[in-house]
Amino acid sequence: EITRLRDTWLILRRNHTSSAFQFDTKLKSAYKSLMDGSGLLPLQNVSIPDIAPLVFLLERDESSLTDYLPWELSDQNSGLDILLIHLDTARLITAQCGLYKVTAENVMKTVKFEDLISDVFQTEFHLRILWGAKGATVERTERQKKYEQLLAVLSNRAEAPEDDGTAV
């Protein structure tokens, strides 16, 4: 839903050219290499490591076994190799947990907290705001479906679905 917003991306690229260049040249390629298991996991200056591949693996159940994972879409023949790389990366992350904790504590020393907005960073707040009072008790697939609907509504509000990206 976010990548579909052509006008928004064009405006962002025009107004923030250097950031867009960094995003296109460095961040996209780094993310892709981490997802396909070819990138190295940095250990220095990282307080929250990339655990998205592990989360994808842990969220799989019987109903999602036929759905391809992001790295399986790019190369279906090396899926098992990439799976093993992600499991090994998860092992490295747990082994280096202390290092990530120290880095995070050093970063958090410079952060100033405001009591008024501290709730925004709580999981319970997001469950209530996105899925209501029953948010934690609803099945994961139901929560994901509602989240996708919310993204679709916000995306359609930003740019109409029939917009061909020439309105900028």
Rank of each mutant, 00 (worst) to 15 (best):
N156T: 07
T17K: 12
E148R: 10
I82A: 03
S63Y: 01
I82R: 14
A20N: 03
E59V: 00
E139K: 13
K134P: 03
E124L: 04
Y68C: 07
G135N: 07
T123W: 07
N15E: 15
I48R: 09
I48N: 09
G37Q: 02
L58V: 04
V168L: 12
E105K: 12
K101R: 15
D50L: 10
T89A: 08
G132S: 06
L151V: 00
K146D: 05
L40P: 00
S29P: 00
V168K: 02
I48E: 08
L99C: 12
A104T: 15
E62N: 09
T123L: 14
E59N: 14
K32W: 02
N15L: 14
E142C: 03
D164F: 00
L73I: 12
Y68N: 10
P49G: 05
N156W: 01
N45W: 05
K146S: 09
T8G: 05
A167S: 15
P42K: 02
S78N: 15
R91M: 06
L69A: 04
I51Y: 02
D67L: 08
W9L: 08
Q44K: 14
Q44Y: 05
W131F: 15
S38H: 00
F21T: 15
R14K: 13
L43E: 08
F121S: 12
A20W: 12
L54W: 04
K109H: 12
P49M: 03
A95E: 08
E1G: 03
T110P: 00
D163A: 15
L34G: 04
Y68V: 04
R140P: 03
Q122H: 12
K32F: 08
E139P: 05
V120C: 07
Q149W: 01
K112E: 11
V102S: 12
L154Y: 11
Y31V: 11
A160F: 02
R4Q: 11
D75Q: 08
S63I: 03
A90V: 05
R143K: 09
K112F: 07
S19A: 14
T137G: 06
F56C: 10
D115A: 09
E162K: 09
I11E: 13
Q44G: 03
L80V: 15
P70Q: 00
L40H: 03
F125Q: 06
R140Q: 13
